[in-house]
Amino acid sequence: MASNTHQTADAAHGGADAAGMPQLDFSTFGNQIFWLVVTLVVIYFVLTKIALPRIEAVLSERRGTITSDLAAAEDLKQKAVEAEEAYNKALADARAEANKIVAEARAEIQGEVDAAAAKADAEIAAKAAESEAAIAEIRAGAVDSVKAVAKDAAKEILATMGYKADAKSITAAVNARMKG
């Protein structure tokens, strides 16, 4: 209640001064303007001397950090790409090398196989020649034996029939027969 009466009294006082609007009470303007200017100057100095440079520094530092981090990331990415390329190249090289080795080994083995085959062929040919020689010999032997048997048989037959013939004529006759 006390405050109420105080307020009404104040209102009456203010009303007498400025038609109920304290905003239009010009007697307070000097005071308001003075304190406003003081306030603004203080805020301006706090902002320009402390707050704004500090926030600006933090923001630019953050921008710098982000930029350098991005650059580092780009760098690492580049390195990864390079590493992958090197890996692929090494892989291709290894594959080519392996193919080369395989081809070489194959050629070597082929050579060995060829040599062995040639040797075997030669041996076989030698054996065959030897066998043929043996066969020829045997055949020759057989002809001689046939000759001897034929002479003997002819002599025996002539003897049995009562003829007497010398060995020379019989041999000539047998030889002539066998030739033709």
Binding site: V42, I43, V46, I50, R54, I55, A57, V58
Partner: peptide, 18 residues
């Protein structure tokens, strides 16, 4: 108001953290 501004802009940014 000055105190509030100081609290927000000066005290608030005292860490200077990234």
């Amino acid at each position: 108001a000055i105190v509030g501004i100081v609290l927000l802009l000066v005290v608030g940014s005292r860490g200077r953290a990234i």
